[in-house]
Amino acid sequence: MTDSEQNSSTTAPVVACQGVQRIYQQDTVPVYALRGADLTINAGEFVSLAGPSGSGKSTLLNVIGGLDGFDAGSVVVGGVDLGGLNAAELAEMRLRNVGFVFQAYNLIPVLTARENVEFILQLQGTPNQERRERADAALQRLGLGDLGDRRPGELSGGQQQRVAIARAIVTEPVLLLADEPTANLDSKTTEELLGLLRDLNPQQGMTIVTATHDPIVMGYTSRQVAMLDGEIHQDSASAD
């Protein structure tokens, strides 16, 4: 990133969606996953995206993260209009600017926790020594200092999800997107995890958006957005 981009990202919103539509074709029947979603998120916000299943939370996160395309409207992330990027540029953007955390932890089973975290740095071309240091630091931050040599199968669900978060933040992305990260965790683990996420937020100025059904999760976030039928239904930031 250039200096000017970095400056603009502190003043301009990190995410600006306008009239975003995403239409899936299912057996020739169009399914409207997003039907004109408007959402602006500023730097440093910790946003929860709530709503019933099928309301379009995942689709919106994927569109913002450059993982999925969209059919109408505009999506600007970190000052870059995603509508103008090709597949390679989107992949590059995901690699550099966005951290993803999925519901199913999605770690690489054959790699240890540390190797999973290092993997993404390796894709970025970070040299060996630095890679290891940064991976260890990220694991440390998430309280996994001792577990770096374990494989995902040897970790609990909560620990695996923390590894996934470590992997997502190790590249110091502008934006961390989490899709129901606590859906498979019990309430105690959920609270631990959210505590960690919330701490990341002011420390790094990292902007976090998490999809969830869970009121506990919403309680931890600084802003609550509710979705319904592919649209933004309620937003605590614009609430009366």
Partner: peptide, 16 residues
């Protein structure tokens, strides 16, 4: 397939 999908979600290119 799922793992390869993850690779690409993380920013790996298909040729990688």
């Amino acid at each position: 397939t799922r793992e390869f999908g993850l690779f690409m979600a993380l920013g790996m290119r298909p040729w990688q």
